[in-house]
């Protein structure tokens, strides 16, 4: 299986953003998806650095892909979406609006925020030119197996969420701004202080979610370490690893060890948790009763 790095979901300062892609040039990953996924207001801060990141990664032998926004509503956002194919790299569709701007027949990939739940949807997207689909994270293993087989028949590589805080919802409202008593249009970039999202706790002070501007993520880091073999057996082509602010290159290395058999699931999970005592893992979407459930002991 391959390793794909998904787009950074958080708002980082430009230097930290650029450093991630410098670091990934030497990390054991195959594909890197970059660009702004969550909020169009963040893009001007690093837009100028995207061409350099693309060429650094491409020179290092990585396949580089540019993501669309997850939710396109404003005129400005439609223009940004229309301009994506002009960057000269493959586009990852995370909002179907993007399809309206891809010339028919242009190969593209589909990200986890497009609802691909069944074979008919997969086949329709394949007919439009999809060559790779990262499935929605909430799909159970039974569905993944069926869709991986359907993808194989149609020449579509199937990718599954492998690691990281998982996107659970996207809204028109910015929760970071709201928490600071502001509106989205006057947010003053309230999300910039939380490079992995802001922890949201229950009334019992139990960690539960993470706030990231207009996006809501899981508190737990979804990890498929215990399902990697089952996913490989199903014919899944790649695992998606989602960037986090610390230790991400090391995490990429741990998943590579798992794939090549020099690390086992339990020790990889323990190593991930050992990097930060506040890291909680989950894999319930694939095999549990609830998304938040974890099948391991770590």
């Amino acid at each position: 299986m391959q390793l794909t790095v998904g787009p950074n979901q958080f708002f980082w300062d430009t230097e930290r953003w650029a450093a991630l892609y410098d670091e990934l040039a030497t990390a054991p990953v195959d594909r890197v998806v970059l660009g702004e996924l969550v909020c169009s207001k963040r893009l001007p801060f690093f837009q100028d650095r995207i061409p350099q990141a693309i060429s650094t990664l491409a020179e290092a032998g990585k396949t580089v892909v540019l993501t669309s926004l997850a939710l396109v509503t404003l005129k400005r956002e439609r223009k940004l979406t229309a301009a994506l194919p002009e960057m000269g790299v493959e586009v990852e569709v995370n909002d179907l609006t993007t399809l309206a701007y891809l010339p028919e027949g242009t190969p593209f990939s589909v990200g986890p925020l497009v609802n691909v739940y069944n074979e008919s949807t997969l086949a329709w997207l394949a007919g439009r030119g999809a060559t790779r689909i990262c499935l929605p994270p909430e799909l159970p293993l039974a569905s993944v197996r069926i869709l991986a087989a359907a993808g194989a028949d149609l020449g579509v590589a199937i990718e599954v969420w492998g690691h990281g805080r998982v996107p659970l919802a996207i809204s028109g409202r910015c929760y970071h701004a709201r928490m600071h008593g502001r509106t989205k249009d006057n947010c003053q970039f309230a999300c910039e202080d939380d490079p992995d999202g802001l922890d949201v706790r229950t009334m019992d002070d139990q960690p539960f979610l993470a706030m990231n501007g207009v996006q809501t993520l899981s508190d737990s880091y979804v990890s498929c370490v215990h399902q990697t073999q089952a996913l490989a057996d199903a014919g899944v082509a790649a695992l998606r690893l989602s960037p986090q602010s610390t230790g991400f290159a090391k995490i990429c290395g741990l998943y590579r060890q798992l794939l090549v058999g020099t690390g086992d699931a339990t020790s990889v999970a323990a190593a991930i948790c050992g990097m930060d005592e506040n890291t909680r893992l989950s894999d319930g979407f694939l095999t549990g009763a609830r998304g938040v459930d974890w099948s391991g002991t770590a």
Partner: peptide, 14 residues
Amino acid sequence: MAEGRCSLSSYATG
């Protein structure tokens, strides 16, 4: 949340 794009309930309850 944008409808059809929310897994909050799935995460907490399945």
